[in-house]
Write a protein that binds this DNA or RNA. Sequence first.
DNA 1: TCTGGGGTCCTAGGACCC
DNA 2: TCTGGGGTCCTAGGACCC
Length: 413
Amino acid sequence: MSEKIRRIAHLDMDAFYASVELLRYPQLKGLPVVIGGGRRPVDAALTDGQSELPLHRIALDAFPRLKDYTGRGVITTATYAARQFGVGSALGLMKAAKLCPQAILLPVDFAEYRKYSRAFKAIILEIAPLMEDRGVDEVYIDFTDVPGGQREGGRVLARLIQKAIFDQTGLTCSVGVAPNKLLAKMASEFNKPKGISIVHEEDLADKIWPLACRKINGIGPKADEKLQGLGIQTIGQLAQQELGWLIDHFGQKTGAWMFDAAHGRDTRPVVLESEPVSISRETTFDRDLHAVRDKAELGAIFTRLCQQVADDLQRKGYAGKTIGIKLRYSDFKGVTRDQTLERHIADAKTIRHTAGLCLKRVPLTQRLRLLGVRVGSLVKTDTTGALDPNAAATPLSSAQRAADATGIPDQLF
DNA sequence: TCTGGGGTCCTAGGACCC
DNA sequence: TCTGGGGTCCTAGGACCC
């Protein structure tokens, strides 16, 4: 009998947002380009006086530069030419402007990226039907039973998929193929861009153990710092630790997971479909707002967020019963409050009312920089529409009455 | 002139029930 | 006259990911 070896691929699009922008504006190739901000439409400025020109003919002078930007925001992604100046993801735009003032600044065009995202995923699905969506620019693919999926450890199929995506979209990607998702994810980073990396079980010591623990998907800055404090830098060092010792330091669940990860073990399946748990909208204001002084502006934003969440729910066919708010103060500290209703709802009015009650339970003396609205505990609504259009909020809980009595000023919402 | 937006999962305490 | 032990739901916060 033919023994099939489990082969899982992780496919990661190369510099996805920037590559999509370069398809539109090939004249920017090789230049430092930064994508972010995303607040002001830039195409008006772009086409100003040049509205007859196709996008690829727009003169470089017409593109906005980082140095001319005023306002908040961070870089979502930067081209390699821009990264040479030390600017990259998550850097504040104003700080980035100091490092690379001449960089071209493009707004985030998520609708466009989503179009390409759907396109490359459709191409993959024609070749390999078992695909797990991991966001706009990443997927896992189960190669195990796909024709050619076992050849050269998966390299042949990876090459085929890369070629199909490039031929049909002009975009490049990197692929890692390994016995499981954990290793495939690490492998896809080995040869970027346009890379293919094959990892077998027996490659663990050579290819995985020398890597920093941070390369494990799920070990973030906090866990990494703690590990370093314990003298553990590499995955190999992590693998040397006793299971019990890891559990003592990180808890049962995380400790056991780390132990398995360090030994390259991961049994998670490739998941084809999944239901959302929550749907939310949030926004950072152009300037910090005060609950009393900027009440009208804040109230309008709040109502709009609730409306957007309601629209999202209805468009996607969900209703939820846990309504929550999130806010961030001017000092960047955040709080959340939520309240669970008796019934699932999806209408803006109930969301607005319940979220308003949540907002009353939070101190609002300090200025705010962000406000968000979330609906969780989702259920699918039937095809005819809303589950319970006239659902009302439940009465205040005792905890909320207590909060109301703490002397927090009346919140006007 | 720091620090986006949209998610998931985990933990931990308290309420409440059996 | 000391103090059970589950189980589930709710809430708040935090780590992490794309």
